[in-house]
Design a protein around this nucleic acid. Structure first.
Length: 289
DNA sequence: GCCCAGGGGTAGT
DNA sequence: ACTACCCATGGG
């Protein structure tokens, strides 16, 4: 088993439907309920689910894919380091090595693009705990998606058809504020076939599609592309990344220009670097996970 | 009461 | 292209 930091992976702002209870991570991924327990000493990952399979794969194989365990962290870090050198930023390397240490075993999940669209439209100007609560509130509107597992109740992620049936007022009731109309319009206008086609497209084409929706700007679009398509050339810039780039690398600018700079400096795996930065910065500002 | 959160739209330069 | 201001909600 390759190196894995399950706590960092499931609690670094890339996913919102996981919670840790009595040492066990409980999560909902699409319509799968998953319980994960990781033993750091012997590297054993205990998996339970309401289903035998995950995304058409045997459970173990499917979860290892979901967790990004097939990513070679050495390859990724090598690529980032090479990019630092070729872009003329080799003086960043000591700081990067410190960050690698702090985020060792953090992996980017293979998540669903449609699910990420809703999650990150909601995420606008909200903290992570609030995002989790709001998403859960929307999911629980559909009692037909209820899944009972090991004495707990979960809700599978709603389909587009289900979400289309919600008027903006329903989102208001759920406490989504000014994001309500964005969500309603998104579900009315999104093209599921296009979402699938984008898997074979470059980041510019993906950006071009998502930026047309109200409520999706540069940051949200990059999150969808990074977390929903596992396109590691995306580089979302939020307040944390913005502050991090300035205080550690003395790089300033608006989010769009930081996106361009991040891509140039950190290269093909800048999305991985970005998540290391986010995890590193956020851990410094809170006492305990 | 204040400030802030994985920002974005809009109107004004 | 850049800036200033507003936008709901809830927690510290």
């Amino acid at each position: 088993m390759s190196a894995l930091d399950l706590d960092a992976t499931l609690d670094c702002g890339q996913t919102f439907r996981w919670r840790k209870i009595n040492g066990v991570w409980q999560g909902v991924v699409e319509d799968n309920v998953l319980f994960l327990e990781y033993n750091k000493e012997n590297g054993y990952l205990k998996i339970s689910s309401n289903k035998e399979e995950f995304r058409g794969m045997p459970l173990k194989e499917g979860i290892e894919d979901y967790l990004g365990l097939k990513d070679s962290l050495e390859t990724i870090r090598g690529s980032i380091n090479n990019s630092l050198i070729s872009s003329g930023y080799s003086d960043f390397r000591p700081k990067m090595n410190e960050i690698y240490q702090a985020s060792y075993g953090l992996r980017l999940l293979r998540q669903d693009a449609f699910e990420m669209c809703m999650d990150y439209i909601i995420s606008t100007q909200m903290n992570i705990n609030m995002i989790k609560v709001k998403i859960e509130r929307i999911c629980s509107l559909f009692s037909e998606n209820r899944i009972n597992f090991k004495g707990y109740t979960f809700f599978g992620f709603p389909t587009l058809e289900q979400l289309k049936s919600l008027p903006a007022a329903k989102f208001r009731e759920a406490g989504l504020g000014y994001r309500s109309e964005w969500l309603q319009e998104f579900f009315m206008n999104v093209d599921c076939r296009k979402l699938k086609e984008l898997k074979n497209c470059g980041i510019k084409e993906k950006l071009d599609y998502f930026l047309r929706f109200k409520g999706i700007g540069y940051k949200v679009a990059n999150c969808i592309i990074l977390f929903g398509y596992s396109d590691f050339s995306a580089f979302p810039v939020d307040v944390w990344i913005s502050r991090f780039m300035e205080s550690n690398f003395n790089i300033t600018g608006n989010p769009q220009s930081l996106f361009e700079k991040g891509r140039k400096i950190f290269g093909d795996y800048c999305g991985y670097a970005q998540e290391y930065f986010f995890n590193y910065s956020r851990n410094l500002s809170r006492p305990e996970v």
